[in-house]
Design a protein around this nucleic acid. Structure first.
Lengths: 345, 345
DNA sequence: AAGTCCTTTGGGAGCGCTCCCAGGCGTGAT
DNA sequence: ATCACGCCTGGGAGCGCTCCCAAAGGACTT
């Protein structure tokens, strides 16, 4: 870690210029990779930069250029506990990776209260960032619309509905659920139940669709007694499982739309004296830590979280570029999921 | 969410001044809470600010004032998977909470490679942030020393050793471990084993100390055959548990220095035909999601993560203030842990 | 030899703020 | 009435960049 000291006084662009015997503009051009600089000059400047240990002053650059070189990653606090851990850390890791060789900075913003939301709205409206990444917004969150209105580049993780107007990155929830259920059917299960998330969330709808698609494709009957809402919580999973067992005691498999609900369901299955997977096969969704540590370990659908994070960053950066260039090419991106097979099915 | 539009042109301080019929300096004074402004003027300015929807331009302020109003939260990538989720999200939540009514911004920096570390070092050396929060650094990480050398305010989560020179916030690992083991002894267990973390980590040493302290206080013999290194991993926990069982098949309780290792130990106990807690009581550390979802749910020592995050932010802000004022009052802070009792003990 | 066009370069202006100095004005003392 | 001393206030200077214009020079053409 060689950082030339020269304590107190950081070198400025002007000093670099003087040292290299060129003008300020030229150094600026070299730094920003402008084309029209002779090789010789460029080399001289680069050397001066290296020798002086020059690092551009972001504030000055932002002020002069009117950009900020920063994007905000916004996480609604409610989600912080619920979806919780693996989701965020995965996405953050991806975003950070993608940003690593940009000189964009990542601002982390947790939003807990309406007051904080307003404050962030102000902040964003004042164009203090170049773009915004919104993680797991609710359908009724006003932020996406605000961002659209003020023409601030933004990317959502997940969609609020089937025809999302803001650019997004999502994973293939339908396909993942379908694969999970196909897997269960392939193992000879015939009475496959599902514990869904709250059906006012698009992600929950998709996973239910996937379930139905798989049954239909296999020519199995759809029995509404095999479908129960688990609310994406462990307690909800318990409740839903009890309901399912009372309605169809003969069920031989359950697809849960989240691992946490699967954990609840698993507990109820145990209480009812049923073995997993011998009597009832179980599959979850998310491939979280919970899944790996359940007994037996839970088969689950993995979302490519890190890749989603990378995609989000990439899509956002493109959007920022496009805006600058006057283009406007907004599109969503859906990434594939993967079934991780473990002992529970 | 009322954000006055006035699209395209954000109001500047100058415009606020004109609108309020005062000079630039006066508006600046009001914004920064300087004392010597008459009440009347202050009110007029505040109203102008509100009516124009003025939001100060950070870049300009940073440039003029030579500060940045931003702090960096640095997470070494290696840790991102290991300690993983609850640790970071808890700390981040705390930091963010504490920063919420400051106008400090939180920059998130993941460091994976030496190259990224150097880049961050450059960045920090160029004083592009006002302070740094370092999460779970290793004893051999060069970053803390660098920060000390360039006199950049910094706070560590956890200590690298008993006499940490950089300000830190830690939880009471020794006390937590001691409480856990006392709890086991209180339940009548006499052959209490422990699975430790890697003993070159200070945190692992502390937890082992707590274990020994509790045994000593209860007048129980210390048997080195009851101590095994589990390396803070699940596989390590398995290995350590096997070793312990072969050395002391009569053990009736195990204190694991992390939940993840406890999960490994639990699996081995099951394989060996032992019941938890009837035959062997089990306690973990961290109170992570894993603990709640184990079968039976795992008694564990909770670290006040969110409070640690808040403390870190607070200590850092104080330090930044102190530096400005020429003072220099660096100190560590240790927060208490709490034993969460569940069915495993 | 003069004119044209392109590439490369230097440096002025200005981004929106903070810092600080000088000046205005009121109050109390002389 | 005069002076000294405060408190407020306005606005110049300057933070370190980017943007852009003008100018210098080289390679061709006429």
């Amino acid at each position: 870690m060689t950082v030339s000291g020269r304590r107190g006084q950081r070198p400025t662009l002007e000093q670099v210029a003087a040292y290299a015997g060129v003008g300020r503009g030229t150094v600026s051009r070299v730094i920003n990779g402008a084309a029209n600089v002779s090789d010789q000059t460029r080399t001289a400047v680069q050397q001066a930069i290296a020798e002086l240990g020059y690092v551009p002053n972001r504030a000055a650059r932002a002020l002069a250029a009117g950009s900020t070189d920063a994007i905000a990653l916004v996480i609604p606090e409610a989600e912080t506990r619920l979806f919780a851990e693996p989701y965020f850390s995965g996405i953050i890791r991806g975003v950070s990776t993608e940003l690593a060789d940009t000189d964009m900075q990542l601002l982390l913003t947790l939003i807990r209260t309406p007051k904080e939301r307003d404050r962030f709205a102000q902040y964003v409206t004042a164009h203090r960032v170049d773009g915004v990444l919104l993680v797991s917004v609710h359908a009724d969150d006003p932020l996406p619309d605000l961002l659209e209105r003020i023409e601030m580049p933004a990317v959502l993780s997940g969609r609020r509905s089937g025809d999302e107007s803001v650019p997004y990155v999502d994973c293939d929830n339908t396909g993942g659920a379908q694969a999970a259920v196909e897997h269960l059917i392939g193992r000879g299960r015939r009475a496959v139940a599902t514990v869904t998330g709250p059906l006012d969330m698009y992600v929950a709808q998709c996973r239910l669709h996937g379930y139905r698609d798989a049954l239909r494709a296999a020519g199995l009957e759809q029995d509404e007694r095999l479908v129960a809402d688990g609310d994406f919580t462990e307690e909800g999973g318990r409740r839903a499982m009890r309901e399912l067992l009372s309605r169809r005691p003969d069920l031989d498999a359950v697809f849960c739309a989240s691992d946490v609900m699967a954990a609840g369901a698993r507990a109820v299955l145990r209480e009812s004296g049923r073995r997993v997977p011998e009597d009832v096969a179980l599959v979850g969704f998310d491939d979280s830590a919970v899944a790996r540590h359940m007994d037996p370990p839970l088969t689950s659908v993995r979302q490519p979280l890190e890749e989603m994070g990378r995609s989000m960053a990439r899509v956002l950066l493109e959007q920022i570029e496009d805006r600058k260039a006057g283009r406007d090419d907004r599109a969503g991106r859906v990434l594939p999921t993967e079934l991780i097979r473990r002992a529970s099915s």
